[in-house]
Simulated assay, not measured.
Amino acid sequence: MKTLIIVIHPDLPGAVVNKRWVEELKKFPDRYVIHQLHECYPDGKIDVHCEQQLVEQYDQIVFQFPYYWFNCPWLFKKWLDEVLTHGWAYGSKSGYKLAGKTIALAISVGVDEADYLPSGTYNYTLAELLRPFELSFGYVKADYQPPFTYYGIEYHSTAEWIEKSVQPYMDFLNAL
């Protein structure tokens, strides 16, 4: 069974961690299908029917993106708003096309994990800040899993540090 990895990064060629993760995923085409939203929709005009058909094909879906401004990139929010429609994702007897599908987030974070503690810089844990995703995917009856997070990109983005992120990410995906 392949896992659909939906990559939402506005500048993947200029990225560090997300780009490296995609490079690693490409080594395993028998296990992962990579779908890059910004590459598919550079104008932001999402083909809703196409996205729904794609998602329906997979039982495991991972949304991979950088976390900034305490949220996801704008195209992910737009995707959620447009693709998770009434009658398809929820709200009718024929809806709930995501029901039972394993959904997870794979997130790169600029600051250190200690900044996302009640006593840290931002006063909230990342789990608390990600609660809208948990609620949204729960609402459509998906099996939402705890996210994979890799912290400290702004502070530690050496080649060695980036490489250290790869195996934990792959282990996370293999454990879904």
Rank of each mutant, 00 (worst) to 15 (best):
K2T: 15
K2Y: 11
I5A: 03
I5H: 01
I5K: 01
I6P: 12
V7S: 12
I8E: 12
L12K: 08
P13I: 08
G14E: 03
A15M: 02
A15D: 04
V16S: 08
V16A: 05
W21T: 02
V22I: 04
V22E: 06
L25A: 07
K26D: 14
K27S: 05
K27V: 04
F28P: 00
Y32N: 06
I34Y: 07
H35Q: 11
H35V: 06
H35M: 04
Q36Y: 03
C40A: 15
Y41F: 09
Y41C: 02
P42Y: 08
G44L: 09
I46E: 00
D47L: 09
D47Y: 07
E56W: 03
Y58H: 14
Q60M: 11
F63Y: 15
Q64P: 13
F65A: 08
F65K: 10
F65M: 14
P66A: 09
P66S: 07
Y68I: 00
W69A: 01
W69S: 00
F70W: 13
C72F: 12
C72K: 12
P73C: 00
L75Y: 01
F76R: 06
K77N: 09
K78N: 14
L80A: 15
D81W: 01
D81C: 02
E82Q: 15
T85P: 09
T85N: 04
T85Q: 15
H86K: 09
G87E: 14
Y90I: 04
S92D: 13
S92T: 14
S94D: 15
Y96C: 10
K97E: 09
K97I: 03
L98H: 05
G100P: 15
T102K: 15
T102F: 08
I103M: 12
I103L: 00
A104M: 15
A106W: 05
A106C: 07
V109E: 02
V109M: 08
V109N: 05
V109L: 11
V111N: 14
V111P: 04
D112F: 07
E113P: 04
A114E: 11
D115P: 01
L117P: 01
S119H: 03
G120W: 02
G120Q: 00
G120H: 00
G120K: 02
Y122F: 14
Y122W: 07
L126N: 01
E128C: 03
P132G: 06
P132A: 02
F133R: 08
F133M: 14
F133Y: 14
E134T: 11
L135S: 07
S136K: 03
F137I: 11
F137R: 06
Y139H: 13
Y139M: 08
V140H: 06
A142H: 02
Y144D: 10
P146G: 06
F148I: 03
F148H: 07
T149P: 01
Y151E: 11
Y151Q: 09
H156R: 00
H156P: 07
H156S: 05
S157D: 04
T158D: 00
W161V: 00
I162M: 05
K164P: 01
S165A: 13
V166L: 06
V166Y: 04
Q167L: 15
P168S: 13
Y169K: 08
M170S: 10
M170E: 08
F172L: 10
F172V: 07
L173C: 02
N174E: 04
A175W: 00
